[in-house]
């Protein structure tokens, strides 16, 4: 039994038929082919699936797609392009804020939620904000440096 779901993804209206049990992350990856959002643990712990729901970071593996009806969803594809990276993405590249890169989309989306509310976060605040994002390469030091630099670049 499917239902019609209408929402806005990366600024574009989307309307499609989904089964109520479809997770937001599966809608994004399988139906909309937005595969930048990753599934890591699939148990709402690792944060690789982090996207913005009406401007706030959420774990899309733990949200039903139908819960986002009428909402605005932003994924990593919605913040920059290959030709023009978002300043936060550029900071991750410049400061080697990734190793394997699997957790990076979630890290960037969490970072942007933090910077939206705290334009100049301290290193401690950045670490606290990343509580729900796990990097198994354990590259946290450079991730924190990248977010610090990305926040500065966004103000410039």
């Amino acid at each position: 039994m499917s239902v019609t779901l209408s929402l806005e993804v990366n600024g574009k209206p989307v309307s499609l038929e989904v089964a109520p049990r479809t997770l937001l992350v599966d809608l994004l990856r399988d139906s909309l082919r937005l595969t930048g959002t990753h599934i890591g643990c699939d148990t709402a712990q690792c944060g690789a699936c982090t996207v913005h729901l009406d401007g706030r970071a959420v774990k899309s593996c733990n949200v039903l797609a139908v819960q986002t009806a009428g909402a605005k969803v932003t994924t990593i594809e919605g913040i920059g392009s290959d030709a023009a990276l978002h300043p936060m993405q550029a900071a991750f590249r410049d400061h080697h804020g990734l190793q394997c890169g699997y957790c990076t989309p979630g890290m960037v989306m969490s970072a942007l939620d933090l910077v939206a509310r705290h334009p100049a976060p301290s290193r401690d605040e950045i670490r606290e904000a990343l509580d729900g994002n796990i990097c198994r390469c354990t590259g946290y030091h450079n991730i924190v440096t990248a977010i610090e630099a990305g926040a500065k670049a966004m103000k410039a």
């Binding site: 709402a44 944060g47 982090t50 729901l53 706030r56 970071a57 959420v58 774990k59 733990n62 949200v63 969490s110 939620d113 933090l114 904000a129 509580d131 729900g132």
Partner: peptide, 9 residues
């Protein structure tokens, strides 16, 4: 409670 993303939802 939880982490930032859990608190947002």
């Amino acid at each position: 409670i939880g982490d930032a993303m859990v608190r947002n939802q």
